[in-house]
Write a protein that binds this DNA or RNA. Structure first.
Lengths: 139, 139
DNA sequence: GCTTGACTTACAGTTAACTGTAAGTAATAA
DNA sequence: TTATTACTTACAGTTAACTGTAAGTCAAGC
């Protein structure tokens, strides 16, 4: 039954890997609201660690701070917004997946270019064949 | 034998989908150097279309303008830098692939959250089970 | 002859997400 | 007791990649 540790902003910043500047910035933006002790100093809990962990997952999918704020606003309204939060995350996922797909398309061309360089280096591609001609081989 | 069309910056911007501001900006940064007519006006060729196309693929993999400038500098030095260009693109690819992998990891958690919301909505997950407990099911 | 588009330099502004400084106060830790 | 850490407000600075404005010139097309 020891899940009630309190972290100062300095400790917390080490745990979650964000500087205290960033944590205060996130707070200003409403992304996290830590507790305060009797002297008005911030303290963070295990719950805050979980939340920042999840927040970093959200950011990692490409979700912007604005979108995360939107999510937080819905969350603050309670269980009645679960559907909307689910839909928001679904939109984020869809977007993230298409970003990945796009990236993969671009990577394909990049890989062809690498292969082309390799062909030039080991002379399995003739000196006269340009990259755009080479690319046509794969159409 | 009609591959020698000349595009003004206005025409070219429509073809490649970049504004003339952006094209001039890229030029200032050394990313593209168009030809000039007798009056000093820019004109772009089919070659420039190919190059911008490739450049957009590079950008699409997450390559920064600085890296692209590095690539261009190597290219300007001729065939002796093919190896280095190949290595540069390989680094970019590696980076891009790990970005994708990271994104996929984050997406996994996001998907679990969506499933969790779904479970809450159709009551296949008990009201008392929090998301972090739920996540432990998949460890 | 007038409109349209292009040219130049020289900046200033924008967005996102931080990052940092200054100045002054206050509580905690060694 | 002194150093450390945290607090506040109020900004200013940073990076990347644009985006836009102003002011003045110039040439081509209708």
């Amino acid at each position: 039954m020891e899940g009630n540790k309190k972290y100062s902003i300095g400790e917390f910043s080490k745990v979650v890997g964000l500087t205290s500047y960033t944590l205060r910035y996130y707070e200003r933006e409403g992304l996290i609201i830590p507790n305060r002790d009797k002297n008005g100093r911030r303290y963070y809990t295990e719950q805050d660690i979980s939340w920042i962990g999840f927040l970093l997952h959200l950011k990692g999918t490409g979700m912007s701070m604005n979108e995360i704020e939107e999510y937080i606003k819905l969350r603050a309204q309670g269980d009645s917004t679960i559907e909307q939060r689910k839909d928001l995350l679904k939109r984020v996922r869809k977007n993230s997946l298409s970003q990945i797909d796009e990236m993969k398309m671009h990577l394909k061309v990049l890989s062809h270019k690498i292969d082309w360089y390799e062909g030039k280096l080991d002379h399995t591609i003739s000196d006269s064949e340009g990259f755009s001609e080479y690319l046509k081989r794969f159409e």
